[in-house]
Design a protein around this nucleic acid. Sequence first.
RNA 1: GACUCACUAGCUCAACUGGCAGAGCAACUGACUCUUAAUCAGUAGGUUCGGGGUUCGACUCCCCGGUGGGUCACCA
Length: 491
Amino acid sequence: MEYQSEDLNELMLARRGKMKELSDKGVEPFGEKYEFTHYAKNIIEQFEQLENQKVTIAGRIMSVRGHGKASFANLMDMSGRIQVYFRQDVVGEEAYEIFNLIDIGDIIGLNGRVFKTKRGEVSVEVQAFTLLTKSLRPLPEKWHGLKDVETRYRQRYLDLITNPEVRDIFVTRSKIISATRRYLDKLGFLEVETPILHPIAGGASARPFITHHNALDMDMYLRIAPELYLKRLIVGGFEKVYELGRVFRNEGISYKHNPEFTMIEIYQAYANYENVMRITEEVIAYVAQEVLGTTKIMYQEQGIDLTPPWNRLSMLDAIHEKTGADFRVVTSQDEALSMARKIGLAVEKNTDIGNIINMAFEEFVEPTLIQPTFIMDHPVEISPLAKRKASNPRFTDRFEAFIFGREMANGFSELNDPIDQKERFLKQVAQRAAGDDEAHMMDEDFVTALEYGLPPTGGLGIGIDRLVMLLTNSHSIRDVILFPHMRHKVE
RNA sequence: GACUCACUAGCUCAACUGGCAGAGCAACUGACUCUUAAUCAGUAGGUUCGGGGUUCGACUCCCCGGUGGGUCACCA
C-alpha cells in the first residue's frame, strides 16, 4: 500500500524507515496476541515478593534514556508506568540492535527480572522482548503532555496516552456508574432497557433529533427521556425499575450541555416523591463514599457536603427568602406579573403563573444553591407529568436537587390520573401549536396505559455526567465525556 | 446565536512599537552499561489556521472566513 508521501513529515518517514528495517531483520511490526503475567502497578506495589522474580508485561514505550550499550525506558500499561532496563549483555547484540529501532510510542511485550535501581526505582531488567505494534506517528511531548484542548477532544486517544489525570477521570466515571448500579441492585431494583428510537419524543421538554426508519417508512426520534416507557413497565407490574443510558437533546453545546448525555431514571411503585428524594441523596452519598471514600468533597475550590439529609425547601419559600416576593399569596396572573416586575424580572405578558415562578426561581435562587438542596413543590404548569399536591392543585409533589447551583436530579410523585394526564398533554400540544417546539407531544398509548392503572409511584432522574463532573472536580462536561461532539473538521 | 480570547516546527511555547521566524522536548548523526524531564557534540525540521487588503516590508495592523476555549443567551 502506497501512502501519499507529501502527507508524511520527516518524523513519520523516519518511523516508516525503521519499520522497513525491522521487517528486513525478520521482525513483524504488527504482532500477535501476547500473554503477560503482571501489570506495572502490581510489580511496584508487590516489589518485596517479586524482587528477582521473572515477570512478563506489555505496554507502550513512553520514554527512552539511552546509554550506549544499555538503555532505560518507561513502559505504560493500563495500570500505570514502570521503568524497564535493556542491557546489550543481557538481551544479546542482535536483540539490542532491534531495540535501537524501537521508538517512543511503540508497543512491546517483554519479560525480565524485577529489581530496584541504585536510586531506588522498581524496574524490570529485560531478558527478552517482542515488538507488538510499531507506532508510525510521534506522540505529544513527554513532559508537558498534550495541552491543546481541541486536539484533546478530537483525538481523545492521545489525551489518554499522554495525560494520566484524564485517564483517572474516566476510571472514576466507570466506578461511579457501577456503584450506582450496585446501590440500586441491592435495593432490589430491576435494570431495564427501553427503546432509544421513539415514535413520539416524550418525558421531557426538549427538542429531539429526528431520524428515519426506511423499512417502516416512518420518522423516529432519538429519545429525550426514557420516562414514559419506564412508567409503562410499572403499569406492567415491574414495581422497581431503573434505566441508565444515553438520551439525546437537539440543543446547544456548552460546558454543561452535550447533545447526548447519560442519565439514570428510577421508578418505585407505591412510593412518593418523599421516598425518591431519600433515594436521591442516599445514592449520591453512597457513590461518593464508594468512589472517593468520603461524602465531603471539593468542587472548584468550594467545599460541598453530600452527607444526607440534604436541605429541603419549597420553591415558593426559597423565592420568598431570596427576594422578599411572596408568590404564595398570588392567585392571578396579573398579580404574578406585577410581583415579577417588582423584583426586576423581565417577563412577557402572556407568561403563566407557573412559568413566572419558575423564572424567579432560576434567576434569584438557583445560583445560590451551593450545598445540596432539594427544591420542592413546583408549579403544575412546568410539571406536566407530576402529581398535584393534595393540599394545593396548582403545585405538584415534585423536587429538584441542586448542588453548586446546578440541577443534579429531578423527581416527583408520578401523575397517575389518566384524565388529568390527558388534559395536561392537550395543554402541551396547544403550546406546541403556538410555536413552542419543546412542549410535550401527545402520547395516546401512555394515557391508555394510565387508564389500565399506574400504582402510586415515585420517580426520579439523575444526570450522570453532571454527577461525574461534581465528583471529579471537572469544570466542563467535555472533560467527563470521552468523545464530546465537535464540529466536523474540514481540511 | 452574541461578545471575547486563541490558533507559530510532530508536541509545549517565544518573537519588543510593523524590521532576518526562535527555544525545549521529539527526530536524525556520533559518544556513553544504574539513568529517570539522562548527559555531551553536531544536523535537519515552518502554507506563522485560510483568503484578501494596507505597507518598502506583516506572525504582528485592517477586512472576510474556519476551528476551538471562555462568558452570556437558549436549554433541565
